[in-house]
C-alpha cells in the first residue's frame, strides 16, 4: 500500500494510504482531499481533478493521451510541466511517498 502525500493548495500536507489499482482521483476523493472536485468522476471530461507531479514521476508514468493533453490546457489552475488529470493515473508503488501537489486556481 503506497503512501501518497497530497500537498494542498494552502501549503499543508495530507499523507494517505492508497490502494494499488485505484485512480489517484478516487484516492483523493476517498480521503476528502480538498481541491479535487472530479465532477465527471473519472471520464476526463471536466478537468477538475488537476494535480502536479514531480518530473521523475511524469517520465515514469508514460505518455499522456491526446484527450487528457487537450483538457489540461483548460484546467482552472494554469498548466505546469508536471500537470496531469488525477483520474487518469492508476496508483502503483512508483507513487509511494511521492508529493502530489494540488495547484491553486
Amino acid at each position: 500500500m503506497p503512501t501518497i502525500r497530497f500537498l494542498l493548495a494552502g501549503g499543508e500536507e495530507l499523507a494517505v494510504e492508497a490502494l494499488n489499482g485505484r485512480s489517484l482521483m478516487e484516492t483523493a476523493l476517498e480521503n476528502s482531499v480538498p481541491g479535487i472536485v472530479a465532477e465527471c468522476n473519472g471520464s476526463a471530461a471536466c478537468a477538475t481533478c488537476h494535480v502536479v507531479l514531480p518530473d521523475q514521476i511524469m517520465s515514469a508514468l508514460g505518455p499522456i493521451s491526446e484527450h487528457e493533453n487537450d483538457m489540461l490546457d483548460f484546467a482552472e489552475a494554469p498548466r505546469e510541466a508536471g500537470s496531469r488529470l488525477s483520474c487518469q493515473i492508476k496508483v502503483s508503488d512508483i507513487l509511494d511517498n511521492v508529493a502530489v501537489r494540488i495547484p491553486s486556481a
Binding site: V37, E39, C40, N41, G42, A45, C46, T48
Partner: peptide, 17 residues
C-alpha cells in the same frame, strides 16, 4: 463552488466546453 448544471459522472455534458 461547483454546480450541477452540466450534470456529473460519466454523462457529464459533452457540450460543456
Amino acid at each position: 463552488k461547483s454546480h450541477l448544471a452540466f450534470g456529473a459522472g460519466s454523462h457529464f455534458c459533452a457540450g460543456t466546453w
